[in-house]
Amino acid sequence: MTAPFLQVKDLQVSFPTDDGLVRSVNDVSFGVARGETLGIVGESGSGKSVTSLAIMGLLKGAKRSGEIWLDGISLLDASSEEVRKLRGRKMAMIFQDPLSAMHPFYSVGQQIIEAYRIHHRVTKAVARKHAIDMLNRVGIPRPDKRVDDYPHQFSGGMRQRAMIAMALSCDPELLIADEPTTALDVTVQAQILDLIRDLQRDFNTAVILITHDLGVVSELSDNILVMYAGRAAEYASAEDLFTAPEHPYTWGLLGSMPRLDAEPTDRLLQIKGTPPSMINVPAGCAFHPRCPYADLASRTLVPPLTEVAPGHRVACHIPVEERRRIWQHDIRPAVEGGR
């Protein structure tokens, strides 16, 4: 078996602050193959965005250790100039709020042209034609006219399309989408998710989709990484994660979401408490103060990420059989309700 296109091993990211070293990401490992999508799910402060920015090399003042391999290149060993040349061409990124993520003073076309010409020695006219092609490709009507419009003249959905056009202009092999639909309405969200799926198929791109929404992640992902307080809580195929989740945090996330496909229950399964601040992460399993099943071990020891089934890893102290029993008897009926 060859290594996947992107391979992250034991990634650690920490920031020196006045309150000491903040470890935003701890021992996170995953791989993404070409044409495959990894969903990273977590709440605010879970380290999901920091992980993606660490891959892109866009974190200022952060200390990174571990390994990040992109198509055989070690990103942590490469010089910043080498990594810069990979950005945009080999790996690209789209962000949550396309209005603030695009420069307000330059037209959409100018920004795509700029992205293309960094990595390709072509004339402005050629790049402009490419920009129009890309806008057309992402479904913007009358691209030859809209190319000269400014970001604020686009609607939210169109802006995100333009952002995708910009990210894909150099045909990157890895696309990181950080909450790409959070700022959009639900019908527009569906359009953008469809678009990402179509483009991924056409370009055979590896995609990392970062989101807090389990619904969004299940639309696209082959594998899902659930992060909590900078660590991997559960890492599984989408199939396994939704049919046989084993981490109490995953259960909580599933139970917290009211869903359209099930008869509403009286009360949602809630997780008590709040996500921890990264300055003051609970000892042991970071989830233990919110976990109803926490025992002494959870309070003192960080649970290792253990493989419970092929490709399914969980970091939890509860014995496997016990976990499966709790899921089957207590959680699943409540989550799936009258489905």
Binding site: W251, T265, L269, D295, I326, H329
Partner: peptide, 19 residues
Amino acid sequence: MNSFGEGSPGRGQAGRDLV
């Protein structure tokens, strides 16, 4: 009663919401 994790003997008591 439909609180998270309730009704699992042994560990269930901890399942009461802090809230």
